[in-house]
């Protein structure tokens, strides 16, 4: 099936079988390796991408569903000012350990800062509920987002 969408700002046109999931299209067909495969069951958040600005699990959506949409992955987000600030804050605050969940966390965080620049600590935690981290215990992740959000508000 013909599918066209905008990936990190650039148009993409593909012919994919209807049963192909977005994560596989990104990783195997397009070589976009930022979104990770942690469970492939919409249970962990490592594959998070933005679909028309909203975070979604790319492991749980058919590629044909994103036809005509805008998809942003960590690769695109990292090019943007806010994305860079988040990445730097995560790195500086010790919010990254193994790093496998990190692209997903930054992707979700990017959307949350855009969505709610007044998010409280509890709201930040709530937005991040769908991203599991097994290394950090979440404290430093929440702190890293808080630092960026308070700067972003100003």
């Amino acid at each position: 099936m013909k599918v066209s969408f905008k990936l990190n700002g650039s148009p993409v046109e593909l012919d994919v079988p209807p049963n192909e999931i977005l994560l596989d299209t990104l990783r195997f067909r397009l070589g976009v390796r930022g979104p990770k495969r942690g469970c492939e069951r919409a249970e962990c958040g490592t594959c998070t991408v933005l679909l028309d600005g909203k975070p979604v699990y790319s492991c749980n959506i058919f590629t044909v569903q994103v036809d005509g949409s805008e998809v942003n992955t960590i690769e695109g987000i990292a090019q943007k000012e806010l994305g860079k600030e988040l990445a730097e804050s995560f790195s500086r605050e010790g919010a990254v350990q193994c790093g496998f969940c990190t692209p997903g966390f930054i992707t979700t965080s990017y959307a949350l800062v855009k969505e709610n620049p007044n998010a409280s600590e509890l709201e930040i935690k709530k937005y991040l509920e769908g991203n599991l981290c097994r290394c950090t215990g979440y404290k430093k992740i929440v702190e890293a987002v808080k630092k960026v959000i308070s700067a972003y508000r100003k």
Partner: peptide
């Protein structure tokens, strides 16, 4: 700051798959 975390945060770091 660790040497590896910024490339992990930017999605550049590579894992097995």
């Amino acid at each position: 700051e660790r040497a590896d975390t910024i490339e992990k945060a930017l999605g550049i770091a590579r894992y097995m798959e």
